[in-house]
């Protein structure tokens, strides 16, 4: 019974991660506002993190910090390391994206995709 619940809920977890991922993906490609695109990218990114961390979990495991209990089951520490560094790199790239957004706004006076496209088409026509 317990393992059946685990089967259903375990995959339910991954299904929800896919749903989250696709929400982030949709926000990224369907919205024209660049700040919103960045936030959508963050949602996408965080759901990938959750997928990785879910894979490292073992039933009844504890955090991978050694204890005196010789029977302790530790969660897999490898995905934790990968994601730990990915989070910090993620914020670095997010900061770079925001900096580019600020410069784009200063140059073109808009951060909407379609207005930028219009602007560039106008410029091509005048040249």
């Amino acid at each position: 019974m317990m393992s059946d619940m685990g089967q259903v809920f375990g995959h339910w977890n991954v299904y929800l991660v896919i749903f989250l991922m696709m929400l982030g993906f949709y926000t990224l490609i369907a919205r024209g506002n660049m700040v919103k695109k960045m936030v959508g990218l963050n949602v996408f990114q965080t759901s990938v993190f959750i997928l990785y961390i879910s894979m490292g979990k073992i039933d009844n495991s504890t955090a991978p910090i050694l204890t005196d209990n010789p029977l302790a089951i530790y969660a897999n520490p490898l995905p934790h390391v990968l994601i730990l560094t990915a989070i910090v790199v993620g914020v670095a790239t997010t900061a770079l994206g925001y900096a580019l957004i600020i410069r784009i706004y200063e140059n073109f006076g808009t951060i909407e995709d379609h207005e930028l496209v219009d602007f560039m088409e106008d410029e091509e026509n005048t040249l």
Binding site: A63, I65, L84, T85, I87, V88
Partner: peptide, 12 residues
């Protein structure tokens, strides 16, 4: 080294 934490978190 002994609990959760490290350079990344401390720096932030």
């Amino acid at each position: 080294d002994f609990g959760p934490g490290g350079g990344f978190q401390a720096g932030v």
